[in-house]
C-alpha cells in the first residue's frame, strides 16, 4: 500500500494544485484553514491518522492496483469500502446525530409556528415587562439554532472527521 500520498503543503501555506496535477489527481486538497492539526497530513510524513485506516485496510479486500482502476474495479472498491467497519462507523455516527436532531429542531420550529395559530392566548401571556411567551420562544429559536450548530460541529469534529479523512486517502489509494 503506497504511503506517499501527497506532496503536501506546509501548515496554512497555499498550495497551487494546478502546478502539480499529478498530486492533485492522486489525492485531495488539504483542508487549509483548520485550527486543529489533527487530521491534516504533514509534509513528508506518511499519513497514518489514528487507528481507523488500519481497520479499513483490514476490512477492504485488497484490490489489485495495477495501473489505473477500471470502471468495474472502482465499483468494487466503493462496495468494499461501504461494507467496511470503518465506513459503517462513520455512517452510523453521522446518522445517529443528524436524523434525531433534524427531526427535533424541525418539530420544535413547526410547533412554534403552529402555536401562533393554535394557542394565541398562551403566546400572549406576559413573561417580564413587555416580553411575552411568543418573544421568549422566538429568542429561544435563535438560541437553539446557535446551540445545535455548535453541537453538530463538535460531533463531526470529534466523531468522524479524522476517520473520514483516513478512509478518504485509503479509498483514493485503492482507486488509483
Amino acid at each position: 500500500m503506497p504511503q506517499q500520498q501527497m506532496s503536501s503543503p506546509g501548515q496554512g501555506q497555499r498550495f497551487d494544485w494546478w502546478a502539480a496535477p499529478a498530486a492533485a489527481t492522486a489525492s485531495a486538497r488539504p483542508d487549509r484553514p483548520t485550527p486543529p492539526a489533527a487530521a491534516r497530513p504533514v509534509p513528508s510524513v506518511p499519513v497514518q491518522p489514528a487507528p481507523v485506516p488500519a481497520a479499513a485496510h483490514a476490512a477492504a479486500p485488497a484490490v489489485p492496483v495495477a495501473g489505473r482502476a477500471t470502471a468495474t474495479d472502482s465499483t468494487e472498491v466503493y462496495r468494499a469500502v461501504q461494507g467496511s467497519e470503518a465506513f459503517q462507523e462513520i455512517r452510523r455516527s453521522y446518522r445517529a446525530f443528524v436524523f434525531p436532531v433534524s427531526s427535533a429542531f424541525l418539530a420544535w420550529y413547526l410547533a412554534y409556528v403552529a402555536a401562533q395559530a393554535a394557542a394565541p392566548d398562551l403566546m400572549r401571556s406576559p413573561v417580564a415587562g413587555p416580553f411575552n411567551v411568543a418573544w421568549l420562544l422566538g429568542l429561544l429559536q435563535f438560541a437553539t439554532t446557535f446551540l445545535l450548530t455548535w453541537l453538530y460541529a463538535r460531533n463531526a469534529r470529534t466523531k468522524r472527521d479524522r476517520a473520514a479523512l483516513g478512509l478518504r486517502w485509503d479509498t483514493q489509494d485503492q482507486l488509483r
Partner: peptide, 18 residues
Amino acid sequence: DADRFAELEVRSLTGAGA
C-alpha cells in the same frame, strides 16, 4: 443500483474522489 449508491455514500461521507 446498489453500486451507484455505494459510490455516492462513500464519496459523500468521506470525500473520496471529490
